[in-house]
Design a protein around this nucleic acid. Structure first.
Lengths: 337, 337
DNA sequence: CTCCTGCACTTAAAGGTTTTCGGAAACGTA
DNA sequence: TACGTTTCCGAAAACCTTTAAGTGCAGGAG
């Protein structure tokens, strides 16, 4: 802990110039003689001078700081988005002020006020699910971008993964493997993610003229439910040859349950998961074919559009970003496994 | 996006007082008449005035902001620490500026400079492992606290989980269950965490006068290694009745491998994991008895001590925080399972 | 010689808030 | 009335940086 920090004043007097000249020299302005600039730079280095971002921000009205407001403490979806955003910002010298509202609207309001008082240039709001959430953008003096969970207000800027398209892609993959008795196990129906993925399944099957094997099974997003669903499904529809699961946890549970009932994965039943949560998707046996929502890309995109919005070029609406199917052993063709 | 933001000047003129009086009224100072204070508060509410934290910080030299510097992008350990810190700060109106160095020293330096230029009041450095890391505190004008990964400099303030004690506790738990042929499978020996946990095993066994079953098996922190280790171990030491694993991933793999070889968990072999990574520890069958490092508590403690250090009351040294054994089915007494 | 131009630098203002100090009014006391 | 005390409020400085405007000087053109 050194003493008082050097100001541009100290630099100027050490270099024997005025603070205006010092400022110009440090910022690379042109009307400074090379020799003078050299002296100033040397003085700054000597004092290890760091310009005070507060003073600069006070003057310019720009803090080069954005607030990131997340609701899911556990961070399973928020973290990749955060990393993507931090990545996009890091390149441009931006900083991220992180706040966790813990799903509490009051706390969220509180955090928004605190961020505004710190004069952030913009806000990214990360939802805990893809369900639309109340807008906070009303009367806010800075632009806001919603990531993962879109705003209810279509005038806001939101970025969400294309759950419908991804589910369709997963089913098309199963169809391409020759599977025709395809079932779907997913999470609670009050999740838009569950409904969207079901919709994608329906579309892909309709397009191919194939009937879904049994009803969609809605439960929770857990491994336990996957095991339980395996029991029920294999009882009701014993001849299924493929299952698309709404999460990797469900898929891992299904694999376990199906194997206990003597089904081989992927030979008897091909399985596709969702989320590409590495600890599950790559470590289970067989490794899971699964949908990767590209959340880091989503976060980066949201950050880039926040930049644009700060510069006045907002692009209102809910933008869906494509997902990616990561193919692994759980849908390998029969001959190979 | 409203127009220009209200300043205390606007509030003062709307209330018909000077800015000094407005400031005093807003900050609850005593030498303001009640009626005047009322007028000022009403004016502030009317304009939805938010004091400019930059101006305030410029004057007071305190930004009520701390920097959190993390190295592990994946965030398995960083995130809980971050949440704990955010929790401790949130209560006191502090904000967290998040930076991810991605394990790159250059980038880290860059971030430190950026944070310093923003005049953070302090820094928390979160390591990616418990291996000691180079200090950054030298000549820094603000206090620094290290969490999870301690600083190499004993003059710094560091908080780490008590890996030795936790491993001993895990082994004592197995001994209390009557197990006497206890093996240990863990991660790479260049991790201090692996060496510490091994040391804890050694101490607990020595104290009880029990020999370890076979050599400690060092591999990687993966489920795959756990499966592989199960094969090797059951070949070399077929009569083991308990295994302490260096991570939940290894434990999950071991359970799988042991079961394939006909061992029942926990009846034949009791298993203890490490990390309490919920997706593994609660969802596997049987649910894993495991060590919880209380990382949120660690983060919160680090944050609180950073507060203290900001106030000039630093407590140098490496402080170890106790872990907690979470007992689940994988070590249930024989009769019950 | 005067005027103009361009260069290198300085002065001063601005940005929003807090705080110290001083002033004015009201009130009580002699 | 004169004076001291209390209460409430205002003027101005301070924090640090950037930038518009201005100053002084040298050299070239007329």
């Amino acid at each position: 802990m050194a003493g008082k920090r050097a100001t541009i004043n100290d630099v100027a007097s050490l270099a024997g110039v005025s603070i205006a000249t010092a400022s110009k020299a440090l910022n690379g302005r042109q009307d400074v003689r090379a020799a003078t600039r050299e002296r100033v730079l040397a003085a700054a280095a000597e004092l290890s001078f760091q310009p005070n971002a507060l003073a600069r921000g006070l003057l310019s009205g720009q803090t080069r700081t954005v607030g990131l407001l997340t609701s899911d403490s556990v961070g399973r979806f928020g973290i990749p988005v955060l990393l993507g955003a931090e990545d996009a910002f890091g390149a441009g010298e931006m900083a991220v002020l992180l706040c966790d509202a813990r799903g509490d609207a009051i706390r969220e309001q509180h955090h928004v006020r605190a961020l505004l008082s710190r004069r952030v240039d913009g806000l990214i709001v990360v939802g805990e699910s893809t369900n639309p959430r109340p807008s906070i953008s009303k009367d806010l003096p800075v632009p806001v971008v919603y990531a993962y969970g879109p705003s209810e207000d279509p005038g806001d800027v939101s970025f969400v993964p294309d759950d419908v398209g991804a589910a369709a892609m997963a089913v098309q993959h199963l169809l391409a493997l020759g599977r025709r008795r395809i079932a779907h196990i997913t999470g609670p129906a009050h999740y838009k993610a569950a409904r969207d993925r079901e919709e994608g399944v329906r579309r892909a099957l309709a397009e191919a003229g194939v009937e879904q094997a049994g009803q969609t099974l809605s439960g929770v997003w857990s491994q336990r439910w996957g095991r339980h669903a395996a029991e029920m499904l294999l009882m009701a529809e014993p001849e299924i040859d493929a299952v698309f699961c709404g999460s990797d946890q469900i898929a891992a549970g299904f694999v376990e349950g199906a194997r206990e009932r003597g089904r081989r994965i992927p030979d008897d039943i091909a399985v596709v998961g969702y989320d590409n949560w590495e600890v599950l998707s790559t470590e289970t046996r067989p490794a899971l074919t699964t949908v990767d929502m590209n959340l880091e890309v989503l976060g980066r995109t949201a950050a880039q559009h926040l930049f644009a919005a700060i510069d006045g070029k907002a692009t209102p609406g809910v933008h869906t970003l494509p997902c990616q199917l990561v193919i692994r052993d759980s849908t390998a063709p029969p001959g190979i496994s």
